[in-house]
Amino acid sequence: MPAKGAEVPTELQSRLQTPSPQEAAAGEIALKDVGHGYRLGRGATVQALDQVSLRAARGELVAVVGPSGCGKTTLLELLCGLQTPDRGSVVCPPAVLMPQRDLLLPWLSALDNAALALRIAGLSRAKARTRAQSLFAELGLDGFQHARPRELSGGMRQRVAFARTLLSGKPVLCLDEPFGALDAITRGEMQEWLAETLARERRTVMLVTHDVEEAILLADRVVVLSPRPGRVIAELDVGLARPRVRTDAEVTALRERALDALAMGARA
């Protein structure tokens, strides 16, 4: 059951039905009563997620916010099929993960890292590079094709990781705090860039962040998780036109609501 205090809105209740295979085929994400834990040493276990039900329509951008350790990364790994849930069901079209750490491969150049998914799909090195090149330039990485990851700044590394994620061509993107390591200015630029890119090239996105403002600026819907074990304690529809400005009254109002929900979850 969701935590007391924050009632699940009725409009959400209607969404919480058993996912059917058709929905998956239609590109919809559906989690139903998902629970997942980890075994630690000496028989101890830690429950990361509990009774999480969640949906995302095709092309929707859903932001997931919640305190550290509440199971956000776990949620994305379940969607990507890297783990199977202990309980409940997960239906998700093919999803690609942009991990919390950028995980660029140190032995590949920046461009080859971006093109990794294409190489894996069987393209030759040259073809993969050509295909990755234009996106690379769009991300403002021109001139750094041959740089190795450790020669890039934190922001550049994240952009390369993002290019790699996009180039996988999968319909669902699971972004785990993609802009976490960036300074405020670069972060703002990247948020704009992400919004533009998605406007052009529609994908379903699960965006994990602990920055509530970022969630509201980017998402169609914001899901708030409680502290561990993570449960859905609130869902906010962000029905605002884009581009959104962080100082807008509506944006700040929604931010306050989300922060209230988080604070309530922390007390519960």
Binding site: C80, G81, V96, L97, P99, L103, L105, L116, R164, S168
Partner: peptide, 17 residues
């Protein structure tokens, strides 16, 4: 780094890849 093979798996890499 165990996360690297994990990442490659979400990019559909085979065991060999």
């Amino acid at each position: 780094d165990p996360d690297q093979p994990k990442l490659l798996r979400t990019l559909d890499a085979s065991r060999w890849q």
